[in-house]
Design a protein around this nucleic acid. Structure first.
Lengths: 234, 234
DNA sequence: TATTGAGGGATCGTTGAACAATCCTCTACC
DNA sequence: GGTAGAGGATTGTTCAACGATCCCTCAATA
């Protein structure tokens, strides 16, 4: 009986996941991720609440969840807006990524490492590239780096970086040439994976460091141009 | 005129007023931090709401904010409780600290560094120790490490670690011998500061690494005993 | 023409109330 | 001693209402 109960305890997470606010935030999150709500969009309580058929309180809780993930910003008495990243934000995101991701690789113990999920992310990227789905490739890239962080085995670090990656996606949605932005990094992800497979975490760290520096440069370049255009259009 | 306006823009943060829920959560956060509400305390909606004179809805909003910060946990139909960290939580906190703090020190550029705030935290610790105020010394220790992280100059990293340090304080409140827990590290903080002053970031990183390993060991040791007692008492 | 100020509509912030669902305690019972 | 059930207390959820704030419009003024 005892082991049956402890086995059941694992299912509790599923049972507790029935919150309406979480489901609403899931919907909004994917809408934002797919660009349906572009950065800067205001999400009105009445509009969204009416469309989804949930009460204002529930919706506000969903907003709060997404605000905590930095996908929305909340302005008092004005409502919530899809976050618009500044170039400084993008730079800070990469600063944090470089700090944490490199530290994770450096802090890996002796090989071998559990790289199956990392390899799966590379495969996912290959499939996306083969199908010319560049947005999907961007998602796969993010998965790769999330799995990289997961190698540290720290729940908190995972959560910290998850929100950073979610922010990064906001930046990706502003740019209009996803292929130029994501394609070069597929090969470099594979390269990092190869280095880790060989047990060369030092080499992997170096690769990662230049990877992030290059990626930042490119994102900022494209991003700055895009933001400039938007500002001119306003 | 233009430069006056850009100068004014910096004051906008001050202007951004806070909602009632935020103010309530500020109050509760500092109460929790100072140990007024020890871990495990149940915060009843009626009790707190009545004492603070806010409605249940507003209070629940404040609870949600703090739950997102991991300071409270929410049990369905039972209410919210001040979080009780498990030993695994403490270990994960230190895992994250070690990862990030060491990475920050390693990632410092060429000296000299802006160490005034770090030095101020050490001074704060000295004053607390001189006054035999060991809880205050724990706070000063946390300040030291927060300022250490701030050297990276990353807004996101700062915020990430702020919540980790807030959690850590929860652990500190469980132990009953704060002197044994905090006193040894005052000298070691000063030592790290000295290494950084000398521009020896490599040495500082090594000091920090052993510091965190030792601190974790001691906290876990004391913590495990305390938690064991509590479990026996229940 | 540009700026200022008043007014109105829309939206958000907060409260209070209501009712359902759940938990906890205490009692009665076997 | 252990169990079942009743009752009270607390939380979960929704709704309606009102005040506060923001934004837009428009007229008055320099």
């Amino acid at each position: 009986m005892a082991e049956q109960l402890t086995g059941l305890a694992g299912d509790r997470a599923l049972l507790g996941r029935t919150s309406t606010a979480e489901r609403v935030s899931d919907i909004l999150r994917s809408r934002i991720a797919e660009g349906y709500f572009p950065p800067g969009t205001r999400l009105s309580e009445d509009g969204i609440g009416g469309a989804l058929g949930v009460s204002r309180n529930t919706l506000r809780e969903a907003f709060r969840l997404l605000t905590h993930e930095r996908l929305l910003i909340h302005e008092l008495n004005r409502g919530v807006f899809v976050r618009v990243l500044t170039v400084e934000d993008v730079e800070d995101i990469y600063r944090t990524r470089s700090l944490v991701e490199c530290a994770v690789v450096r802090g890996l113990g002796a090989p071998p490492y559990r790289l199956d999920r990392l390899a799966e992310a590379v495969e996912e990227g290959r499939r996306a590239a083969a199908g010319n789905d560049w947005k999907e490739l961007g998602t796969a890239n993010i998965h790769f780096h999330r799995e990289l962080v997961a190698l540290a085995g720290s729940e908190r670090t995972d959560e910290l970086m998850r929100s950073v990656f979610a922010e990064l996606r906001l930046a990706f949605h502003v740019v209009d040439h996803p292929r130029r932005l994501h394609e070069p990094y597929l090969a470099r992800n594979a390269e990092i994976l190869r280095a880790l497979r060989a047990g060369d975490r030092h080499g992997a760290e170096r690769l990662l460091e230049t990877y992030l520096a290059d990626s930042l440069e490119r994102v900022v370049e494209v991003y700055r141009r895009q933001v400039g255009e938007d500002a001119a259009g306003t």
